[in-house]
């Protein structure tokens, strides 16, 4: 049994890194807009299908399709927030969160209406896994890891060194002070939505690159994304990364004693433990 651990750790590392991308989007939106935006699920799906369309219909390579996934999901995020979630915000975080759940169901069904329910695969060559002893890893998994790391690095650099990034951190930290300084909260909100949902779109596509996509792609992962954000501390971007790696590795290690079908129980248990024992999460609530 312990001989399985290296393979599980490798799987967990890859899964956790890919999970970190939508988790960062989710937690960033929470930091700035102060509500859990569950439409991350349907935007992951929208991103995955946008990438699918350019990859299969236009023949673009994977990295270009990922960029399209980011842009389309981000744009959709801005539009959806402006039309539907923004009017709900004055009513409070709970109402907006419930509205987000309803919206994600509608968006998922729009995708289903256009593309149907069947599984679709990206147009990529089937390559055999690389093996070292008992451990195997797929070339696509390695690529996903690289894309995820690049996306996260871009986010960190943006937040640390650009004017807009610093403005976002200011609004997340203290909206009143930020508006006193002349920072336009609406503009920051739009940018956060664009970036956050764009990251969700990348996440959705990365999930599907190795396997296949269908309208439920985002929904399947939303619990793990939420768990990752909660474990790391809602609103903390480094926390989202730590949380995602924790959840990813924990889900894989749970296979030592649980059947694969129960894997999502790990997400539930993690949320339960964190909210009971340390509600602030591992890194506390603080945008980077």
């Amino acid at each position: 049994m312990w001989g399985e651990v290296p393979q599980l750790l490798v799987n967990g590392l890859v899964a956790g890194t890919v999970l970190a991308v939508p988790a960062i989007g989710f937690t960033a939106i929470y930091a700035v807009l102060r509500f859990p935006n569950f439409t991350v699920a349907s935007h992951a799906t929208i991103g995955a299908f946008a990438g699918y369309v350019v990859n299969v219909a236009l023949g673009w390579p994977a990295w270009a399709a990922v960029a399209v996934a980011f842009l389309v999901a981000g744009a959709a995020g801005v539009v959806n927030d402006h039309l539907i979630l923004r009017p709900l915000r004055p009513a409070g975080a709970l109402t907006t969160a419930i509205g987000a759940v309803a919206l994600t169901i509608v968006l998922e069904n729009v995708v289903r209406f256009v593309f149907g329910n069947e599984l679709r695969g990206y147009d990529l060559p089937l390559r055999r896994d690389w093996r070292w002893g008992d451990v195997r890893i797929g070339p696509q998994q390695v690529e996903n890891l690289v894309i995820a790391v690049v996306a996260m690095a871009a986010v960190f650099l943006f937040l640390a060194f650009t004017r807009t990034g610093k403005a976002m951190r200011a609004v997340a930290d203290d909206p009143t002070l930020a508006s006193l300084k002349g920072i336009d909260a609406d503009r920051v909100a739009r940018l956060t939505n664009f970036g956050g949902m764009g990251l969700a779109g990348i996440g959705g596509m990365l999930l599907g690159l190795d396997t296949s996509i269908d309208p439920l792609t985002g929904f399947r992962v939303i619990l793990s994304v939420f768990a990752a954000a909660v474990v790391g501390g809602l609103g903390s971007i480094p926390g989202a990364v730590v949380g995602a790696l924790t959840i990813g590795i924990a889900e894989e290690l749970s296979l030592l004693s649980l059947a694969p079908a129960y894997r999502t129980a790990v997400g539930f248990v993690a949320i339960l433990l964190v909210l009971t024992l340390r509600p602030r999460g591992l890194l506390g609530e603080r945008a980077y």
Binding site: E4, L207, P260, A261
Partner: peptide
């Protein structure tokens, strides 16, 4: 192994 057929990856089941 009995798996949930609505998933898109069965890596762990195959490893098993």
């Amino acid at each position: 192994v009995i798996y949930d057929k609505d998933k898109t990856t069965f890596r762990s089941e195959i490893d098993q």
